[in-house]
Amino acid sequence: MAKIIVVTSGKGGVGKTTSSAAIGTGIALKGHKTVIIDFDVGLRNLDLIMGCERRVVYDFVNVINKEATLSQALIKDKRTKDLFILPASQTRDKDALTVEGVQGVLEELAKEFEYIICDSPAGIEKGAQMALYFADAAIVVTNPEVSSVRDSDRILGILQSKSKRAEEGREPIEEHLLLTRYHPGRVALGEMLSVSDVEDILAIPLLGVIPESEAVLKASNQGTPVILDTESEAGLAYMDAVDRLMGEERPLRFLEVQKKGFIKRLLGG
């Protein structure tokens, strides 16, 4: 039985697609057959982050409308074994997603895959609700600032009231908090909310804290999931988050302000 994980946030630009790509890749690296679905119909981005945009022929909406088969639309990742991408349609809108259509695709994927990662669009409307409707678990991506935290709180309410699990009165969706773009220096200055501030407001278990890093932007532009950059703090923090998602214990790191070394200070770095 496949586990369906939605990566969601409410607010846009917090790192949902970056996190979907990184976590999906991380799970596949552990040997689990994984598919990442881009639910952002009309604003297709996942293929860019994954570096497979030139290989998109058919998409999610084509499969829903039975214009293509799943095997035609699925793109096999070139770097990571066991990883597949189902891209969104760029020419359609969110109305192309129907409950029956999405359910059909997910059921078919569940036969073959262990993990299905749903990369949600921003907002709380149809696209976002479709992405979370069938989820077993949710990764709520939040930046350490008040508006992002407020929107995450809103999406948590929707997860617990408008998902299939909630409607059927089954065990609720398992919730994970992923704090991204965390800048310890700015937290120390009081310009950003701290990990404990966010945990206090949202009151859900913390999956990981991804530090603000230049490596993320670089990885996005290159079309390589940042988790593959094992030199970067962000990549390592994502790997820790994947380990925790798989039930392993990992201490939090990269939360402290790094002291600049003598040479670095001398060079004004």
Binding site: I124, R150, R154, G157, S161, I201, A203
Partner: peptide, 26 residues
């Protein structure tokens, strides 16, 4: 017993007891 999240509204005809938090915007 569950948290009342932002955007949610709860009404009781009698007394209302919430054993969890009421988020900003709720």
């Amino acid at each position: 017993t569950k948290p009342i999240r932002s955007g949610q509204q709860v009404y009781a005809e009698g007394d209302l007891i919430i054993l969890n938090q009421v988020s900003a915007g709720a």
